[in-house]
Design a protein around this nucleic acid. Structure first.
Lengths: 112, 112
DNA sequence: AGGATAAGTGACCATTTGGTCACATGTCAA
DNA sequence: TTGACATGTGACCAAATGGTCACTTATCCT
């Protein structure tokens, strides 16, 4: 059994949670946000929950931070995502697969 | 907060476990394997554990099955991976990010 | 028929995960 | 300097997850 490098594992685990993906999306839309600002985007959860998710993202190196006075700013680092895309996903996302996707999409839209 | 379609969530959750990724890799290397054959590749776990992982992969539509007599054959379906790559990962894996990856890789290899 | 082989089921368990809260610390600004 | 604001910490909890096992079902072969 092939065991993938730590970075692949950390990133996949980090991306497994929808809240964490949403946080990355938020930083993609607007980089360098504070904890507060990010909390506002996930009103169904307390600040503590959001902070834990941010920790995990930081642990996977998907987010970097910088303190600015009493606030902490969060920045997106897409490099690990790209690496996982290269090292693992790329194997499955090939031209042939793309053709399959198009075919399946086509079939799904034929309501006949 | 943007919630991603069910398929994205199912696939990310399914891919979060290293054993499941290893199973997909095994099917990528040799498609259409039986439960037994797949178990042999994960000797540190019993058949029941492997079966549970296969169920989850099937639930995410990453694996399809066909019964052949008393054995059950498993087939890789890469379409959902491609879809996730398109719908979510693609946003972060862009030419600019690639340049960052190359830069970082370069820096990592400079042992000066 | 009947034993060996392949896979399925449901109960069960330990650990991890996702989340909350009370409380502490650090920083700005009047 | 003191109060309001932004973040950090550790304990704690419920639920999901990853895994095992005893037992069952179905199929093949002689």
């Amino acid at each position: 059994m092939v065991t993938y490098p730590l970075v692949v594992d950390l990133v996949f685990r980090a991306l497994a949670d929808p809240t964490r993906r949403a946080l990355l999306d938020a930083l993609f839309a607007r980089d360098g946000q504070s904890v507060q600002a990010l909390c506002a985007l996930v009103p169904e959860m307390t600040r503590f929950g959001v902070m834990k998710h941010l920790e995990i993202l930081e642990g996977a190196n998907l987010v970097t931070t910088r303190r600015e006075g009493r606030t902490k700013l969060h920045f997106l680092n897409p490099v690990p995502i790209q690496q996982v895309a290269d090292r693992w996903i790329g194997k499955y996302a090939q031209p042939f697969t793309r053709a399959l996707v198009d075919l399946q999409t086509d079939l799904e839209h034929r309501t006949a």
